[in-house]
Design a binder for these strands. Structure first.
Lengths: 329, 329
DNA sequence: CTGAAAGCGCTTACAG
DNA sequence: CTGAAAGCGCTTACAG
């Protein structure tokens, strides 16, 4: 069924059918009702491609996920939930795209998408530069690129707060487990850690900066190695995300090092399993769902040519559970 | 830039440009090179809508996720990883759609998608019937609908095996934690559980069938209630997924009931955190990534009009860790 | 309030 | 090997 056949059946022109479909005013009530009835009868839906070709408007947004996105799935799911909730209210579609060389500019060039939401893209991704040059619209989550629209939390402040929590418990020997090196989050948190130790006049030891890649398994191995070695061990460990903190807990449990009696552990993200780890994890809550929602909102308001806030910083919360306690040294 | 302008610049017709783009044979080498060069020069990409309108072919597949998909995120992520890996090799796009009334038939009618992959749809979803009636193509993951193509594991056998594992350890009082009621997985696992108890002549108690909804939090509450009550308690608990098993472990830990000394706990799925729970979880491994991959493969082979296996049952593995042990009663 | 017709940017059967 | 032209199914400026 196409518009021509519908028009024929109704005894009107295709123009009229089109106008009914697109809710134009000034259509005779009878005509409208008649057309609507026939559309209903044949369960007709306008062809998406024909429509877009003549309208020259696209209503598809791409969600760009890092090439290797298995690391923190809860994070992704919650962001997606927020985006979906928002997109559901509209006629827009969501295209899921894994970040690959040149793919995104191509999607824009083909007119397949009208905007892109980047989920924590690595720093210095060349694609952002290309898009900005071509005046394509994108929103960043947990990232920053010049003055492009972005949704984030105050990463630096959150890191300071969780470190201060450890410090106030008496910890002076604090280690950190890093995420992947090209992640803005990882970089900022490490930087803040170094600055914090400096300010508080605490020892900054190279072997207390552990490389965990945001992964549970990697972290587990690295922590086990540290505590099995002859080097001095920290009394507190700050992991840059909860998944890694779970790896830390696992390693310490196997080494029979009690948490928090001997070593305190703190994470970042507050993912679904964090309250159920043993012991429950002290961490920083990020409003992931809200972040996805706001990203989509910004996207829509831009596409509707409304004014928009270029930068939205959402509130975080320090969640204190049982994995952190008084320092005993 | 459109095809007309490219043609002009090359001094050929649009037909020739189109043929070059679509890799037709029998084009003069010089012509082809020239056209390619101009395309390159202007970074031209054919308009997606115009192309599809005239070709009448769509290369977009929808991944349909249950309305509330926050329950088992690792599962979703891995499936998605498999699908992405496969789709990456092609020119297809992936549209992410949350299952809502009538939305999917509409996408087909609009010609927006040419196929759909359903991720664990609830049993008796009316949409499958509609699609089949309209001869639309879909693949099911972890579900079953008449003789539609599906990817799954042998759910019944896997459940039997994990229960047998508990039985062989001496457990005679086995409880189960159920997932959401309209999930095929949940239903099959419960059925198998009941049958197993019957066969082995074990007590089937109503209050040992716990409703957990595939969620950690719900399960935690339900288990805590059971073990705080005066009723007889089981020596083993089989949770229908790992997330719920984590909830069981959490509840038991708080009640100071040692696992596996007093109560053994087994799960299902083998998600990323399972080896890191306390104690590490005995469970059934599902090859999620492979399932996504196979689903996409079936989809592509169908769209290429190749023959295909209607049903692919992938192997599972029983993973024995420290959360299960000899029964002491 | 409605219609005839041009146009969106491609592809492809037909003709040469 | 290549071109002129019809056609895909819509929308919309123009005219009435």
């Amino acid at each position: 069924m196409n518009i021509k056949e519908i028009a024929q059946e109704c005894g009107v022109s295709t123009a009229t059918v089109s106008r009914v479909i697109n809710n134009f005013p000034h259509i005779h009530k009878k005509t409208r009702q008649n057309v609507l009835a026939v559309i209903q009868k044949y369960n007709y839906t306008p062809n998406f491609f024909a429509r877009n070709l003549s309208k020259k408007t696209v209503e598809t947004v791409a969600l760009i996920i890092p090439e290797n996105f298995s690391t923190s799935s809860y994070y992704f799911m919650e962001v997606l939930k927020g985006i979906s909730a928002e997109i559901k209210k509209t006629d827009f579609s969501l295209l899921l795209v894994s970040a690959e060389k040149d793919k995104i500019p191509k999607l824009f060039a083909e007119k397949k998408i009208c905007g892109a939401i980047f989920l924590a893209p690595p720093v210095n991704t060349p694609v952002l530069k290309t898009l900005q040059k071509n005046k394509k619209f994108f929103v960043l989550i947990n990232a920053k690129y010049k003055n492009s629209p972005r949704i984030d939390i105050n990463n630096v402040q959150a890191t300071q707060e969780i470190l201060t929590h450890l410090y106030n418990l008496g910890h002076r020997k604090i280690a950190i487990v890093m995420g992947v090196k090209n992640s803005l989050n990882a970089i900022e948190r490490l930087k803040t850690y170094k600055k914090f130790l400096l300010t508080k006049n605490l020892p900054l030891k190279k072997h207390w900066i552990l490389q965990g890649n945001f992964q549970l398994e990697t972290t587990y191995a690295v922590v086990k190695k540290l505590f099995s070695s002859k080097t001095e061990t920290p009394t507190a460990i700050f992991a840059e995300n909860d998944l890694m903190a779970a790896g830390v807990l696992k390693a310490l449990a196997e080494l029979k090092i009690p948490v928090p009696e001997k070593v305190s552990v703190a994470g970042f993200d507050n993912i679904n399993i964090s309250p159920y780890l043993n012991p429950p994890l002290t961490t920083v809550n990020q409003p992931f769902e809200k972040m996805g929602q706001m990203a989509m909102k910004i996207m829509l308001s831009f596409l509707n040519k409304e004014k928009l806030n270029r930068e939205i910083i959402l509130p975080h919360q320090i969640i204190i559970r049982q994995s952190t306690g008084k320092a005993n040294e």
